[in-house]
Design a protein around this nucleic acid. Structure first.
Lengths: 242, 242
DNA sequence: CAAAGATAGTGTAATGTGTACACTTAGCCA
DNA sequence: TGGCTAAGTGTACACATTACACTATCTTTG
């Protein structure tokens, strides 16, 4: 009984960013409530004996049918009143067995190509959509805070581990594509020559014997990303404690 | 009944690093079990309706009497078997009302001066101690993993926000003290001239009209850290999403 | 088939940053 | 007063960052 007050629920929320070759979007689910659309991050309760990362992957799949993405935990949100907004309370009551329980949520983020994933709404999601991150959008619960934190931490991470960015490009890509991606991430335009100079210093960018075709201008050189060379050169100084 | 299986417990663990003017130590608690000493991070269950940060501060205080430190959440550990080592199970049974419950733990870290804090064992801690981080020490549960992750993330953070380091020095400090601190953090010796050159570029380091006294060598200039100038100069590029 | 349109691709100079390295200075003490 | 100790200082080199404008190559169109 009152044990349900004491024992909180644990949930996971997924903050998935998608690059559509132009800009960065965030994956939201939409539910209808009193005729209004309510947007939220994909998330739900962790099951008995289920590992947190496993739960995040499962929940994302159940709500959006997306699978096989790399999810990274970035923060846990556990304010006691994070689910107490009346609109949210009403919805929880319609879905949860113990609506009064406190919910502590572990948040995961990821960055993918929008093209790489099929998504379709399932479970209690009425719709799933990619929403451009520049456009403000009010979300349910404390999901605005979670989304903002997730974006900030992802950007920090990319600074430290630029490899993340390359997963967003096709196997063969041009330097223009790479630059567009970087510009989407840092949110500002970059100088073409300086960008190329800096990038081409990296041994892990390997020029292919192949160019664009069918474009009505000088065709661009294709490059590929070499995983092994990257690992050699970015061998992080590891720090062990115990 | 079986609800206790389903509803996990939430705990907090504190990874507190202390600088003793020479090296970095980690705060451990010791408990006696079957005549053996078992070392662990200070941590315990979150209470009903209690915010996570509040819980971390409370638990730390209850176990060590330390208070008023800035605790930063860095990761949540929720592997279903993280508490299933037989030695740990035995201890849990002696302490918890529902020993079979899974425990998801939210970990916090902090970096302080060892001098600034009184500590004494209380609650189920038999002893509290500062353990040098270079010396390997087996810990209970998955606390080695938690401690290592906490140290790695703290170091990353200091790179981004060097302000953290200054809280470890007295109001007035010499550049030698600052350098010793940096060396303890990065784990290697630094060149004196280059260190000074780089540091003195920072406007927030303000020279005082005061020198060391009573030392049997050329006395060092005292400096202070200027909070306001720091904030001006390090005004982080903020990124808002919604 | 020639000209126009579009984007790829290129170099240099100036400035700033990181690194390696050795001697002089100021106070204390014997 | 001479010796000990740690503070404090400068320079040369290599490398990175920034600002900036024209040529090359392909397609399309008249």
């Amino acid at each position: 009984m009152s044990e349900f007050h004491y024992n909180p629920h644990i949930s996971v929320d997924c903050v998935i960013f998608g690059f559509d070759d132009e800009k960065i979007n965030i994956l939201l689910i939409k539910r209808k409530q009193e005729g209004k659309n309510v947007y939220a991050l994909p998330g739900d309760l962790v099951q008995k004996g289920e590992d947190l990362e496993v739960a995040a992957a499962r929940v994302l799949f159940e709500l959006t049918s997306m699978e096989n993405l790399y999810l990274e935990q970035f923060k846990t949100f556990g304010s006691p009143d994070r689910t107490s907004n009346p609109v949210d309370v009403e919805w929880i009551k319609s879905v949860r067995e113990h609506p009064e329980a406190r919910v502590v949520t572990v948040a995961y983020n990821s960055l993918v190509k929008t093209d790489d994933f099929e998504y379709k709404p399932s479970s209690f999601a009425e719709d799933v959509l990619w929403h451009p991150i520049e456009k403000p959008q009010k979300l349910a619960f404390d999901h605005n805070e979670i989304a903002n934190t997730g974006w900030a931490m992802l950007r920090e991470k990319i600074k430290r581990e630029p490899i993340i960015a390359f997963s967003l490009l096709p196997e063969k890509f041009t330097l223009r594509q790479l630059q567009t991606l970087y510009e989407a991430i840092v949110g500002q335009e970059l100088d073409k020559r300086n960008f190329r100079k800096r990038m081409l210093r990296n041994r892990f960018l390997v020029a292919l014997n192949e160019k664009e075709t069918g474009v009505s201008h000088k065709p661009a050189q294709f490059y590929r990303f070499d995983d092994l060379i990257y690992k050699e050169d970015f061998a992080k100084d590891q720090w062990f404690l115990f």
